[in-house]
């Protein structure tokens, strides 16, 4: 680590950052050849990188080309689905995007058969134009299931959820035994057992609340471990009661799954 040094400091808009205007990075502005902070956030000065940037601590998500986001369909206006992507701007998904998957032409009035209002999509931002029209394209490698949880946090906290080289997200996935997908716009999709999803949700909320602190990965590891221990400590009646409840829930889930299966079959026929 010799020679590499990264510095973090909280700044407010207008704080002086540097005399060298060539080092002005994201979240800064130049005034009279000096660099100042543009937003309330953490200034990151690194020996490795030439630019100094300010990572905002809050604020709305602004879509960028290539971002993978989770969207919610809010309107259908042929030939587009309009999706809310947790940003000040709505995004649109062209019907031809789904035609490739459905392998058939989608006519006027049929769009809601494929994606209806309130349905969730995982999509990639294809293009953002000067008028802030946002085009989406469906991301194929992963489609959302019907059973899972969606949690929403500020997009500024996403890097902490993922962690350095994905360390945090990897740990969450392992310890909660869940499938977790973090989208760039701060929406997180979790799929797994009820208890696993609950644990993951709590952990994510802690991370989001303490995103500005250091040593977070260790604290989350402790949190998840303590939860595991507590679970095994409780024995006897408590355990039995829990088991019974779990069985009951599993039964219910089984019934629901069955229904789901049936519904799916029906849809296939219609296609």
């Amino acid at each position: 680590m010799i020679g590499h040094h990264t510095m973090y400091k909280v700044v407010v808009p207008g704080d002086f950052i540097s005399d060298d205007m060539d080092r002005a990075g994201v979240g800064t502005y130049v005034d009279g050849s000096k660099v100042y902070a543009m937003s309330y956030g953490i200034v990151i000065t690194s020996d490795k990188e030439e630019k100094i940037k300010v990572a905002a601590l809050s604020g709305k998500y602004m879509p960028g080309n290539g971002d993978v986001v989770i969207g919610k369909i809010t309107a259908i206006s042929f030939p587009y689905w309009i999706a809310d992507i947790a940003s000040p701007y709505d995004a649109r998904l062209h019907s031809s995007e789904f035609e490739q998957i459905a392998n058939r032409r989608i006519e006027f009035g049929e769009m809601s058969n494929y994606l209806d209002l309130d349905d969730l999509i995982v999509a990639k931002v294809l293009n953002v134009d000067a008028l802030m029209r946002i085009d989406l394209t469906l991301r194929e490698e992963f489609r959302m299931g019907t059973r899972g949880r969606l949690i929403e946090i500020s997009h500024t906290k996403v890097p902490r959820i993922i962690g350095r080289n994905g360390s945090m997200i990897k740990m969450l996935k392992e310890k909660c035994n869940c499938f977790i997908f973090v989208a760039k716009n701060g929406r997180i999709w979790i799929e797994g057992s009820e208890s696993g999803m609950e644990l993951a949700t709590r952990a994510v909320k802690i991370i989001a609340n303490e995103a500005h602190t250091s040593g977070l990965t260790d604290r989350i590891a402790n949190f998840l471990d303590s939860f595991e221990e507590k679970g095994t400590e409780k024995k006897g009646k408590e355990k039995k009661r829990k088991e019974n409840r779990k069985n009951a829930i599993d039964r219910l889930i089984g019934i629901a799954k069955n229904k789901d299966e049936k519904r799916k079959n029906r849809t296939y026929k219609r296609w």
């Binding site: 207008g14 979240g27 100042y36 309330y40 809050s58 604020g59």
Partner: peptide, 11 residues
Amino acid sequence: LAAAGIPMRDL
């Protein structure tokens, strides 16, 4: 405004 993360030149 600053707390809302709005880009500003100054307070």
